[in-house]
Amino acid sequence: MSKDWGLLSFFFIVLLALFFVAGCSAEQVVEDELPVEEEADETGVLIFTADGEEFIREGFVCKDGWALTFEHAYLTLASIAAFQTDPPFDTDRGWEFEDLVRVRVDLAGVHTVDLADPEAKPVVVGEATAAPAGRYNALYWELVRAPGGPAEGFAVLLIGTAAKDGKTIEFSLGLDRAVALLGGEYVGDERKGVLTPGGSADVEMTFHFDHLFGDYGEDPDHDINLNALGFGPLAALAVDGVLEVSLSDLEGRLTEEDLDLLVAVMTHLAHVGEGHTLAAFLD
């Protein structure tokens, strides 16, 4: 009898171990395993957009009082895919969501967009003209280093002017690490992603640059400012009113704390509207 109990206990422990291993594996990036697009009789136009909001189009005063305006805000996007999921995907679930996917629509190619364009509210990245009708409530994309063009080598390249107390700095800040991003339903003052047969709908990749620089209009103790770098630490590196830096060459030039903040910002820059995304560095 004790032998049977030992055997049963052994299997029980093995199964429990499997359970926890399965839980840990849910944090991995799964872009290579995503299911293929399903067939559908009724279709519409699904428009993929990107938005940097007024912060980028109009400029803003960051947490340490520098007034920032942006001539260009280049972002390079790739591996973009929108999903209809049921039950609706929630980022609390983690990366593993393929069992929820009912429909997948891909936007092929690598796309560099300029979010500082004042006419782009938001920027149209591309569209799928025969997307199955339904509710697109999950969005995957990657920020990758641009293979060419004005932002070559950078996933994010911000070019602009910073001004404070009569001092002006012309800056170019490049972020050169690739990031995978996965978000759920659009959160905002309107609903997005609901595609009716014969109609059109848009899904939006949103970028919050106040997460990078902070917002002077918010309380200094507000989350948005506590977790933001600001511009002051970068301004200290400017020479003769010019700052031209990339993330990879800031090591040793910024304090370790500030560098950690800047790296972390790359993982919480992207949203779907105001909804947060999962983020993981690809390199």
Partner: peptide, 25 residues
């Protein structure tokens, strides 16, 4: 409440197996 967050399909299967083994035992 909605579907519990964080439980993957594999986890649910394993959880069902654990419950099954408990019943058999």
């Amino acid at each position: 409440a909605g579907e519990p967050a964080g439980l993957s399909l594999l986890q649910k299967i394993v959880m069902a197996l654990v419950v099954g083994w408990g019943a058999v035992g």
